[in-house]
Amino acid sequence: MLRGQGGLTSRDRYKGLKGSLMSAPSVSETHAAYDAAYFQAYAHVAVHEEMIKDQVRTETYRAAIEQHQYLIQDKVVLDVGCGTGILSIFCAKAGARKVYAVDASEIAVQAREIVKANNLSDKITVIIGKVEEVDIDEEVDVIVSEWMGYMLLYESMLSTVISARDRWLKPGGLILPSHATLYLAPITHPERYSDSIDFWNDVYGIDMSPMLPLAKQCAFEEPLVEVITGENVLSWPTVVKDINCNTITVQELELVTAEFSVASMMNAHLHGFALWFDVTFERPSITPSDAQSDSLNDNLNRRRKRAKSNSLVLSTAPEEEPTHWAQTVLYIYDPIEVRQDQIIEGSITLSQNQKNPRFLNIHLEYASGGRKFVKESVLS
């Protein structure tokens, strides 16, 4: 696992809180209890320290806000899941007339103090509560949110952004980020397999191979969030899901499925499959009537064209600089030897866990060299 400050990631803290919730007497009460654990996990300062120190993440958001300043200047912004309020402050500094910063975690208490310390209380209003339950008295021009979880969809925060969009965003309003893409590719990782599995074949000269079945199950049963490199990737990636944040519905997130058929780029052992994502910060289309109604000058039009041609991308791909999201890896129990150009094919299905919709059920089918397998796991 990728560890943050203090040795725990937000996912670790969330998992640590969920154990006592298993005996909740009803589905609705169970969901409420998991939600409470989720927001409690995000009240811990180490979680926000980890995210803010992720320079790829934070600097890309700041650059996107600055690049879209012409759409934020004198406008109303909603920050969904504001955390410490850093994105809200970026928007205020970009000239927003009003920023509503909403978070259901108690970290919002600190966000209020941070806003006050930066003399921005007149521009930023911090609201403590769930986006689905709070009230805002006006429509907003812009929604900004860092909603992505491990494997993009873990924690299901995108549904909260959708709720905010449908409740308050003006027609043609801006959502940052605007698009997201989830990818999958087969990988080889002999070092990882050797460290966790082959180790048991010779332990201080003792044959401990009877440990192998248990070792494989314990090491690779659950998805692992860890950093791999481009050298581990066996093929070009397959798109699992393309998301347009302006039009995506909650129902589309309940079940995501994709088929893949790729050719290995080398002779290697197939050790598993990795998933990662990109998000893109694009502006909405501007029609001539929009331009006329906004009384845009030539300079502003030039800035818009420049922004459109230079859309920012925040990538968690293995070949890019690592982020706190790393990659999500589904290791298989027994490696498959593949040759260059050998086909690896199958399908992957992601569905919301019935007990806790923030968790993801993963159904992976894969085949190569005449061998077919199925792997079931939960990202929890």
Rank of each mutant, 00 (worst) to 15 (best):
L350Y: 02
V279Y: 00
I348V: 08
S380P: 08
F273M: 05
K98M: 06
D334R: 05
V233L: 04
D141Y: 02
L182G: 00
R302Q: 10
T160F: 07
L8K: 14
H179G: 08
M1E: 10
A219F: 00
L78R: 02
P177F: 05
A326S: 10
S289Q: 15
M22Q: 15
S159D: 10
R3P: 01
D334M: 05
G230E: 11
M208A: 12
E252T: 08
Y100V: 01
S289F: 06
K241R: 11
H68A: 13
L360E: 00
V80C: 10
H68Y: 13
N353F: 11
L17W: 03
E252F: 07
A274Y: 03
D137M: 10
E113N: 13
P223G: 02
A64L: 07
T125M: 09
S23V: 10
K130L: 15
P210S: 07
T316F: 00
D79V: 03
I89R: 02
D195H: 10
S347N: 09
S178R: 08
A108C: 11
I362E: 00
I243V: 12
E321D: 11
R302P: 01
E231Q: 13
M51A: 09
L350F: 09
S377K: 09
E138N: 13
T229Q: 13
K15R: 15
D74E: 15
D35T: 13
R167C: 05
E365F: 02
G346I: 04
G16S: 12
T257C: 13
I65R: 02
G370A: 05
E66A: 15
S88Y: 05
D341A: 10
G172F: 10
I65H: 04
S159T: 12
P210F: 00
H324D: 03
V142I: 14
R371L: 13
M51T: 01
F199Y: 14
Q55T: 15
V76F: 07
L184F: 07
Q327W: 06
S209R: 00
T249A: 08
M148K: 04
I107G: 00
F281Y: 04
G149L: 06
